[in-house]
């Protein structure tokens, strides 16, 4: 009996991510949920610009590559065209929380019936480690070489907190993938975000705190610890909005 294997919704190709990058875990969780809900045949995924730009090569469902930050608008077009499709976006922090803020805010405000997987690793990975809107105060990056100075470039953007006062969104939760327990919680949240769409409940966003060992300049193991020590204190995990019955927020 197979206890664990690669989900079918992931194609059998190697991922291009750096060793220890947790994008791979998040890809797998999304694919596991697609398998479990048996929705691969009607799912359309929207890939971002950033490290996950080639996600269209990894998921076995239909895929569209969006321009930087525009995935929620593209997803809106797809969902409005074919409401029977299950539509998800997979976006990083530069994509969603910087250049794509208008698109994500208004998709949430419209309660667009889509699922958003927001990967927050506090850095621009693909372009080689520049400061992200979510980079922490003091975090050293290529474009904040003396550490992020809030006097110069403000404070990191908290997307779940920012979207939660809107009437629109159905469900907002922040999870992390830096431990076995957290990965299992993340899976539960992602599953709920897809189920909400299946039940026509509307906009669901799961923010996943992820690691970038390469650009953080640490081992994969230390990167997971850095999430515990630095990311989660600033970006507390939990449900920020849930309109479903019996929801605990």
């Amino acid at each position: 009996m197979v206890i664990f294997d690669k989900p079918k919704a992931l194609l059998d190709v190697p991922l291009h991510y750096c060793p220890g990058c947790t994008h791979g875990i998040i890809h797998r969780l999304v694919a596991e949920v697609i398998d479990e809900l048996e929705i691969e045949g009607k799912t359309v995924g929207i890939a971002p610009v950033g490290c996950a730009v080639m996600a269209y090569d990894y998921f076995s469902c239909d895929m569209i590559e969006a321009a930087h930050g525009r995935a929620p608008a593209v997803a809106t077009g797809v969902k409005r065209a074919n409401p029977e499709n299950i539509v998800f976006t997979y976006q990083g922090d530069g994509d969603l929380a910087s250049i794509g803020t208008a698109e994500i805010v208004h998709a949430a405000a419209r309660n667009e019936n889509i699922t958003v997987i927001f990967v927050n690793n506090a850095i621009y990975g693909m372009t080689g480690g520049q400061m992200a809107p979510t980079s922490l105060v003091g975090q050293v990056t290529q474009t904040s070489p003396y550490g992020r100075d809030p006097k110069l470039c403000g404070y990191p953007v908290k997307i779940c907190e920012m979207l939660s006062p809107l009437e629109g969104p159905e469900y907002l939760e922040r999870v992390a993938v830096n431990s076995v327990v957290n990965v299992r919680r993340a899976k539960k949240a992602i599953k709920k975000a897809f189920e909400n769409q299946l039940n026509n409940k509307g906009f669901s966003l799961v923010e996943v705190i992820s690691s970038c060992p390469t650009n953080w300049g640490m081992t994969p193991q230390n990167a997971l610890k850095w999430i515990d020590d630095n990311m989660i204190p600033y970006y507390p995990l939990g449900v920020y909005k849930d309109r479903s019955e019996n929801a605990e927020v």
Binding site: V44, I64, A66, A73, V74, A75, G77, A81
Partner: peptide
């Protein structure tokens, strides 16, 4: 956003 919605609906 409008043109990217067009992109999505056209892809669909």
């Amino acid at each position: 956003a409008a043109i990217n919605m067009v992109y999505g609906a056209s892809a669909a």
